[in-house]
Simulated scan of single mutants.
Amino acid sequence: MTTSSPPQELPAVAEGTRPRTSPPRRTSRRRPLGRDIRKDWRLYSLLVIPLVYLLIFKYIPMAGNIIAFRRFRAGGSMFGDEWVGLRYVQKFLEDPAFWKVFSNTAILGVLSLIIVFPMPIILALLLNEVRKTWFKRFVQTVSYLPHFMSIVIVVGMVMQLVSLNGTVNSVITALGGDPVNFIAQAGWFRTLYISSEVWQTVGWGTILYLAALTQVDTQLYEASRIDGANRLQQTWHVTLPGITPTMITLLILNIGTFLSVGFEKILLLYNPLTYDTADVIATYLFRVGLVSNNFSYATAIGLFEAIIGLVLVLGANALSRRVVGSSLW
Rank of each mutant, 00 (worst) to 15 (best):
A282S: 13
V168C: 08
T214D: 02
A223Q: 06
M159S: 14
E94I: 05
Y221V: 01
G187C: 03
T277I: 09
Q185V: 00
I207Q: 06
L220A: 07
L240T: 06
W99N: 04
L93A: 09
A12Y: 11
F72V: 05
V155N: 01
Q90K: 14
Y270Q: 15
V171Q: 11
I122L: 12
V171H: 09
A97L: 14
D40A: 15
I281Y: 05
T218Q: 10
V101S: 00
F182T: 06
V142E: 00
L164Q: 08
T191L: 15
G156M: 01
P61W: 05
A318D: 08
E222M: 11
A212F: 03
T27K: 10
E9P: 11
L192G: 04
N294L: 13
R73P: 03
V48I: 15
R131W: 12
I151W: 13
D81H: 02
R18G: 05
K100I: 08
L290P: 03
R25K: 10
G156S: 12
A12W: 11
S327V: 03
I172C: 09
I107Y: 09
R322H: 10
A298N: 11
E94K: 12
L54I: 15
M149V: 00
E305P: 03
F69E: 10
L285Y: 06
L213G: 07
H147Q: 02
G34V: 09
L33H: 03
D276S: 12
G75L: 00
G203Q: 07
P19E: 09
I281S: 07
T249H: 10
V110A: 10
E9W: 08
L43F: 15
